[in-house]
Design a binder for these strands. Structure first.
Lengths: 200, 200
DNA sequence: TAGACAAACGGACTTGGGTCCGTTTACTCT
DNA sequence: AGAGTAAACGGACCCAAGTCCGTTTGTCTA
């Protein structure tokens, strides 16, 4: 096995220049359209037109609409992810699980409140889209680790994340439940679910 | 205010004969198509064609696709609802809240396992459809009553129902989590969330 | 720098949910 | 029975997501 072959195996061929250019053009166009007209303005056709590319290009770059919107949100979400992995406690490592979980949900709800429409779009663009998003998998792992001493951390983590589904919270807001009340409800459930010995 | 006016106020004008006939024709057609080809065969156009009615008729009768599928599920779900309201404990009235809640989730998971595809279709046909379905509202009230002594029964009931969202459970099955494991996870969460004094 | 090839391109096309509106039909009241 | 009316009808139409495939373009090698 020669070096060349090894190299090929190692490096996934890097993105062509035009592809990279179009990726950012599309993202910028999407950002612009959303800023002007909200989620209603975010149709794939409109984004493609605004970006000056064909519609096929958008789908090749981002897979589907959900992928496009997730990419738009990527930056913000990445910051939260880094804070969880490298940041100070209680969000970052060091604090006891229940407190880390609470800190996470608190931070995530802030993020959700700031971007509810986009997150909802990315989660409901197609059935099951929510679970395919990279960030979901990441949060799921994080929570499962925090629940490691519970009977089924894997299932429990899914249940916990269910509380911050964009669709659910859109509904709660529509029913006049404010973010403060949602925060309190989530916090209380987190306490009871994450910490086996908790009972206030 | 005369009698006639009172009567008009009281009785919502009953369904016209042709309307009723078409309602059942459409439901039968939908049932047939689903039996033959599963959810993939359940397009509104196909249902309308099979029923021998226009597409507009389907939408007038059922509102949207989600409504049509909910109507298909109605029978089964009604049985469960009756068991909850009039049946024997622990599903029906009489047992302590935690046990009623457990019995409900157990029964609902059976129902879900039997009709997962259809329930998923009805819940994800459009964003937020889940919360607009009559049954959702019913279950929500039931659970909120069972949690009456918790700080925020309304929010908590939504969280509990999140655990049996068809979309989530489809994903769990796809990840090789079986119904037995799902049942256990749900039961454990119900215990901890519904009963303030529970800690096994 | 030429030529080969994979990758990217783009827009016509397909599919499916949902709307619209001119026409038809079941009921009601006399 | 016959006229009036509200409701129901149906299919053409619209919109938006996602696919397909013939064409173009960047990149790598000689």
């Amino acid at each position: 096995m020669n070096d060349e072959l090894l190299q090929v195996l190692r490096r996934p061929p890097r993105e062509r220049a035009d592809a990279a250019r179009n990726r950012s053009r599309v993202l910028e166009a999407a950002g612009r359209l959303f800023a002007e007209g909200g989620v209603a303005a975010l149709t794939v056709d409109a984004v493609a037109r605004e970006a000056g590319v064909g519609k096929g290009t958008v789908f090749r770059r981002f897979g589907d609409k959900s992928g496009l919107v997730s990419a738009l949100l990527d930056q913000r979400e990445r910051e939260l992810q880094e804070a969880v992995v490298f940041g100070a406690p209680p969000l970052g490592p060091g604090a006891p699980p229940r407190e880390r979980a609470r800190a996470f949900f608190d931070a995530y709800l802030t993020y959700l409140a700031d971007h509810l429409d986009l997150v909802r779009l990315s989660e409901t663009a197609s059935p099951g889209a929510r679970f395919r998003i990279g960030a979901y998998v990441f949060w799921h792992r994080h929570l499962a680790l925090l629940c490691a001493d519970r009977p089924d951390p894997d299932h429990l983590a899914h249940v916990l994340l269910g509380m911050v589904a964009a669709d659910l919270n859109t509904e709660l807001l529509a029913q006049d439940m404010g973010w403060d009340r949602i925060r309190a409800g989530v916090a209380s459930a987190v306490d009871r679910l994450v910490d086996p010995s908790y009972s206030p």
